[in-house]
């Protein structure tokens, strides 16, 4: 028979990770719920997952591509910007839903015990589904423009996605923990995401920063988007160093996020 010991909480135990595995079924149900409820009572339903990045791409192509003549590493601007947008939107929507996940599930947190880490993970997985749907457009565009990724590129993509996932969870955990105490996060976040988009080579190539482009690499999303273009569109060689820098930066971010989250987790139910 299992024995539970309830004591004043320590900040982090390895057991916490094992516990998430024990609660994997709840993780599944939360994800399932979020997906089911997501596009309920909308006329377009899951088509929104395609519509949003697609329309953004069209608008950006007209203004940045055609009118502002933004350089795009020799690739047609629509597919250039869509590749960036696809990863960027995954990151930004995962970030915003993670940061509000505790408050959105307030009524459950104050009534039932489960490892709270499940909630942010659920939020990101839910966004991953949108990412997959939106990715079909990219595949269509690649066929239309006649691009095909090389084998190395296909192998690199999952790594990029993992970095993206870790970055969103790491930063999201940090914000979620702050959000429990200071609801300012809700107001700051949209601006923060907008600013961050301009600091990430989504609508422009990193090459315009010239020899300082490595500074941009500290932003993990730079490495992700730049390498995604390299892998899918062959804009440059895949940059292993850049991936490594991004990976290290993301790991640090994730570690800070988890520590911050676990530190505040103790009083979530008391002050939420």
């Amino acid at each position: 028979m299992q024995t539970t010991i309830i004591k004043p909480k320590k900040i982090f135990r390895w057991n916490d990770l094992r516990e998430i595995w024990q609660y994997k079924e709840l993780l599944y149900f939360f994800t399932w719920r979020d997906l089911k409820v997501r596009y309920k009572q909308t006329a377009l339903g899951a088509a929104w997952a395609i519509f949003q990045p697609f329309m953004t791409m069209v608008v950006f192509t007209i203004f940045f591509g055609k009118l502002a003549k933004m350089p795009s590493d020799g690739v047609p601007y629509p597919i250039f910007v869509y590749t960036g947008l696809l990863f960027w939107q995954f990151f930004s929507s995962a970030l915003s839903s993670t940061s509000s996940c505790l408050i959105a599930n307030q009524s459950i947190i104050t009534k039932v015990y489960f490892p709270r880490l499940i909630l942010p993970i659920t939020s990101v997985i839910t966004q991953l589904v949108d990412f997959a749907i939106a990715a079909t457009i990219l595949v269509g565009m690649m066929i239309y423009y006649g691009y095909h990724p090389n084998l190395l590129g296909i192998l690199v993509l999952p790594i990029l996605l993992i970095i993206c996932f870790m970055a969103a969870v790491g930063l999201g955990l940090f914000l979620a923990a702050i959000n429990v105490k200071y609801r300012d996060v809700r107001y700051i976040l949209p601006y923060f995401i907008q600013m961050l988009m301009f600091l990430t080579p989504v609508i422009y190539p990193a090459s315009i920063a010239g020899k300082y482009s490595w500074i941009l690499a500290i932003n993990p999303m730079t490495g992700v988007i730049q390498n995604a273009r390299a892998a899918l569109l062959g804009t440059a060689k895949i940059n292993g160093l850049l991936i490594f820098i991004s990976f290290v930066a993301t790991s640090v971010l994730l570690a800070i996020g988890i520590v911050m989250f676990k530190k505040t987790e103790r009083y979530f139910a008391d002050i939420i």
Partner: peptide, 28 residues
Amino acid sequence: ILSQITPPTTGEVKIKGKVGSLLEVGTG
């Protein structure tokens, strides 16, 4: 505290077995 929603400040509880808590009906 017994349902582990909030941790205690002092002391310890040892529980043998699976706990089901019903602090509200229809949670979630």
